[in-house]
Simulated assay, not measured.
Amino acid sequence: MFNRLLAVSGIAGAVFTATVVGLAPQASARPFPEGVSCSGTSCRNDTDDTYLIEAWQHCRIIGTASETETPFNVVVRPHESVEVEGVKCPPHVITEHSSLGDDFPSRTSQLPTEPTRIGYSEAVIYDPNAPKVRTGSAG
């Protein structure tokens, strides 16, 4: 009898939990503020602020389904629409290490790539006076 009561209580609890979770609002990431949007190869800013938009050029290795991504940024001024050109797809570099040991050189191959699409991930208010992030490279 106790096991049957325990089983019924467990089922009722699961139904209650599923009902409550089903009614709860779903959290959604909103990387773009209201008034800023990007789609395909264009971005639009209907606000009074300038935005920096983080974008990704997707590139397919020619002859395969493999893709790489190259990050870039787009600046969109207030009440402006811009056509986004993306960036040039770099070749995909493959380094083959010799199985004969360290005395034999590695071979490097470059596979050509082609653009497939542009993805957009985030829009933030652009501050040209913000400190620049150091990359560690000279120049």
Results as ranks from 00 to 15, higher is better:
S42F: 01
T41H: 08
I62R: 09
N129P: 05
S81F: 01
R4Q: 10
A24Y: 07
P112E: 10
S37M: 13
I94C: 04
S121I: 10
S99D: 15
K132G: 00
D48L: 11
L100Q: 13
P91S: 07
N73V: 15
H79P: 00
N73D: 14
W56K: 12
R107V: 02
R77Q: 13
H58G: 05
V87A: 09
V76T: 06
G86A: 10
T135W: 06
N45C: 03
N45H: 03
V93I: 10
P71V: 03
P90R: 09
A130L: 12
R4N: 13
S99F: 11
A14I: 15
S121A: 11
I118C: 04
G22Y: 05
F32C: 04
G136N: 07
C38K: 07
N129W: 13
G63D: 05
S106T: 01
F72L: 03
I11G: 04
V75C: 08
G63S: 04
P131R: 13
V133I: 11
Q57D: 05
V87H: 03
T50C: 05
V21D: 00
A29M: 11
I118F: 08
P25Q: 14
H92M: 07
G35F: 04
P112N: 09
M1L: 12
V21N: 02
S42L: 04
P105E: 02
T64M: 02
H79F: 05
H97G: 00
T19P: 00
P112K: 10
C59K: 08
G35R: 03
C43H: 01
K132H: 01
T17N: 05
T50A: 10
S106H: 00
E83P: 00
I11T: 04
S137G: 03
S121K: 12
D103W: 12
N129I: 14
T19R: 08
V84A: 06
S9I: 15
G13T: 12
V87I: 09
G10K: 14
S98V: 01
L23D: 03
N73G: 13
S37K: 14
D127G: 07
P78L: 15
T17G: 10
H92A: 08
P91Q: 04
H79R: 12
P33T: 07
K88Y: 08
G40I: 14
F16I: 14
E54G: 12
S109V: 15
H58T: 11
G136Q: 09
T95L: 02
Q57S: 06
Q26Y: 13
R117N: 07
G10T: 13
P131A: 14
M1W: 06
F104L: 03
E83F: 04
P33Y: 05
E34S: 09
L52V: 14
V36S: 00
T116E: 12
C89D: 12
T135Y: 08
E83Y: 03
Q57R: 08
A123M: 03
F2K: 13
E34P: 06
S98E: 01
D102T: 01
T95H: 02
A55C: 09
I118L: 12
D48G: 12
T50R: 14
S121V: 08
A14Q: 08
R134T: 08
P131G: 07
V8G: 11
I125F: 01
A18N: 12
